[in-house]
């Protein structure tokens, strides 16, 4: 053994590894790009994201490019791609390019413009609500899983938190949301917060279950032996190991939140009327389902595609972000 010699020589030539090394992003992309469904999901996700952002700019302001609130009673229930009847419309009522891309509803409003406006609502509701749910879930689950054995008076922290979860799960959450929304002033922010506060239980359970197995692992003891404090161990060392199921449940959660918001709007408890959301377009359209099926099918299919793409994208992310799963391929 001449290791001592090796380390004492400062100019010792270390051998270079033979295989070229790829960066982390490259490696991630290599795995991710093999998953066609995930790529499809990602493309739709990006399209949705962009159109929601664009929709915000195109449909707001004093003179929007696509005006979702413009009522043209003489042009009601026109099918998709119908040309506007220029004779009966005043110049400011003419839709952009003279075409109703997705047709018009019973008040003659441009469904395309309303869909664009609704996309932004769905996006923000999905992200903010799930963001709230994930934050609460990670925090509660992390505490329950890591400090579970400690006692607060007569009950352990684990028992306390998990029973709160059980109680929350006992409520039929949709009706809880309905009740709260009925009491609070109708606003998009209240809906986000309420959806977030009623959907963190699944994440808590996932995180707790992951933590129970993670905390027994050597690297957690090793981190403690290095003098890492509990807070840092929970959120920096254990959380990234537990994030895979959380990520998947988050993408599904976004989908569920979009569905919940659509459901609330459908029932008339959602975002207040002049503002369009996919849910209330669907709800308004259901009365004309035989005369104007596009009013229900367009928002319905949009919700379906977005929810599906979120799920596929989430699963693809999980497979390629986790080095443990990466090896299997």
């Amino acid at each position: 053994m001449n290791l001592e010699k090796k380390t004492s020589q400062p100019d010792f030539q270390l051998e270079r590894p033979m295989a070229p090394k790829s960066s982390q992003i490259k490696e991630f992309w290599l795995v991710f790009s093999n998953n066609r469904l995930a790529i499809g999901g990602m493309i739709i996700f990006i399209l949705f994201f962009c159109s929601a952002l664009l929709g915000l700019f195109l449909t707001s302001g004093p003179d929007p490019i696509f005006d979702p609130a413009q009522i043209r009673l003489q042009e009601k229930l026109r099918p998709p791609l119908a040309k506007a009847n220029l004779d009966t419309l005043r110049p400011e009522e003419v839709p952009r390019m003279g075409i109703y891309f997705f047709g018009t509803d019973d008040l003659g409003r441009d469904v395309f413009a309303r869909m664009l406006q609704g996309a932004w609502v769905s996006l923000t509701v999905g992200f903010v609500a799930v963001g709230i749910a994930i934050l609460i879930g990670i925090f509660m689950g992390g505490i329950a899983g890591y400090f579970g054995q400690h006692y607060l008076g007569a009950v352990s922290i684990d028992t306390l938190i998990m029973r709160i979860v059980d109680i929350m799960l006992c409520f039929p959450s949709f009706f809880l949301i309905l009740t709260v929304v009925a009491l609070l002033p109708a606003s998009i922010y209240n809906i986000m917060i309420v959806i977030g506060l009623t959907s963190w239980m699944g994440t808590t359970r996932f995180v707790r279950a992951e933590f129970l197995s993670l905390r027994e692992q050597d690297f957690v003891v090793a981190a403690r032996a290095l003098g890492v404090n509990n807070f840092r161990i929970i959120f920096r060392h254990m959380m990234p190991n537990a994030i895979a199921p959380v990520l998947v449940s988050a993408t599904i959660g976004i989908a569920t939140a979009i569905l919940t918001e659509a459901g609330l709007s459908f029932l008339g408890f959602g975002v207040p009327p002049p503002h369009a959301t996919w849910g209330n377009i669907l709800s308004d359209g259901k009365r004309f389902i035989f005369d104007a099926p596009w009013l229900t099918f367009i928002p319905g299919i949009a919700i379906l595609i977005v929810v599906l793409s979120f799920n596929l994208f989430g699963e693809g992310l999980r497979d390629s972000l986790n080095p443990k799963l990466r090896q299997r391929r």
Partner: peptide, 21 residues
């Protein structure tokens, strides 16, 4: 004190490193 004055090397190098960092 941990890690700074007294440190520890564990038995299983395979599981003592955090796999995601």
């Amino acid at each position: 004190i941990r890690g700074n004055h007294i440190s520890m090397v564990f038995q299983e190098p395979l599981t003592s490193l955090n796999p995601v960092f």
